[in-house]
Simulated assay, not measured.
Amino acid sequence: MRVGLLTREYPPDVYGGAGVHVEFLARELRDLTDLQVHCWASAKGGESGESGDGVTRHAAAPGLADANEALRSLSVDLSMAAALADRDLVHSHTWYANFGGHAAKLLHGIPHVMTAHSLEPLRPWKAEQLGGGYAVSGWAERTAIEAADAVIAVSHGMRADILDCYPVLDPGRVHVVHNGIDTSLYRPDPGKEALARHGVDAKRPYALFVGRITRQKGVPHLLRAARELDPGVQVVLCAGAPDTPAIDREFRELVAELRALRDGVIWIPEMLPRPEVVQLLTHAAVFVCPSVYEPLGIVNLEAMACGTAVVASAVGGIPEVVEDGVTGELVAYDEKEPAAFESALAGAVNRVVADPAAAARMGEAGRERAVSAFGWDAVARRTVKVYESVLTT
């Protein structure tokens, strides 16, 4: 089976959960299929062309260097589609690559499978980043998803959202294949070099956030909630890649306000190497995921695999990962009551930190759940079954 995998993110340019998903899915699919990966060229001025190991990178059209990001994305999609003539099937990830899969389906007469990691209609804040390009990204996603031979949702909650947003879809074409986790890479690490390197006091408990500075990830809610945390708790923020200058300014202002109220507020603005993230996850008293929208929340799996209790918002697919009262605590989110959410978030973090024995039990249960239910080998096998279903119809 000759598969073309289309994605914006691919190592070394991985900045979000979708990129992590594609990285590990591709690793497993190489043993099960004849796989070619087509991704964006490096964000640091990379050029189009094969880079070895079955990976081809595509740059946006030179004439669109100053154009809206959505138009640049479509030009990459066309380049990808043109390179897929020898494939039996194409599998695209995120709206950045979905139109490439759709164009390949039309051009080459091959099935198109797409994985929905998020949905444009449920991310209205993206208009801040893309301007009028948000209408283009929504069009690209709708066009691809409604014509796809199969749609993979990364959670049951995501499947429900897909069918709500795109009611013309046949429910029989929407399959659930959860995100995965490599528990050999994400596992408890006793080392503390990363803590020392970034100024984290290993003798004090800390609440950890890892994620991009976006509306979706809800980090402003966490910064306001942190005002109510026990004074002995450090707040460690591995937060970078702001979507817009506006949210970057808001984040910086909230960090400054929090630092004026308490000590132990540590902001790490760069994307850290995986081993450093694993150490920070391992030694956190609690991992906090305040997302306002999250199809699954792979970062929660990473924390659980490192044996750390999780406090997370009960949105999207998160309740399918974090078992309330067993691997952590879930906090109800209502966009109309942000202050209530922030207070409840602080209360949950304080409870977990105040009972280290219970937190340790949650961490152990989280590790067991990550190992037993979310291995990438199983994710790849389930994905191949979806491929087989569309090739035999």
Rank of each mutant, 00 (worst) to 15 (best):
C306Y: 05
E294M: 11
E276Y: 00
A312E: 04
L261Q: 15
A309I: 09
V299A: 08
T282P: 06
A256G: 15
E320M: 10
E320W: 09
G297V: 07
M271V: 12
V278Y: 00
F287L: 06
M304A: 06
V322M: 10
A305S: 13
E276S: 09
V292R: 13
V292S: 13
E257I: 13
F287D: 01
V265P: 06
R252A: 15
V299Q: 03
S313D: 04
P269K: 05
S291T: 08
V321L: 10
P269H: 09
V278M: 01
A285Q: 07
G316S: 04
F287K: 02
C306H: 07
E323D: 15
V311T: 04
P269M: 11
V322I: 14
V310G: 00
G297R: 00
P269S: 13
E320C: 14
M304C: 12
E253S: 11
E257L: 14
T308Y: 02
L272W: 07
I268Q: 12
P275D: 11
A285M: 05
A309V: 04
P319A: 09
R274H: 15
R252S: 14
T282A: 07
E253H: 11
V255M: 09
L254A: 13
E294T: 11
V315T: 00
E253T: 09
S291E: 08
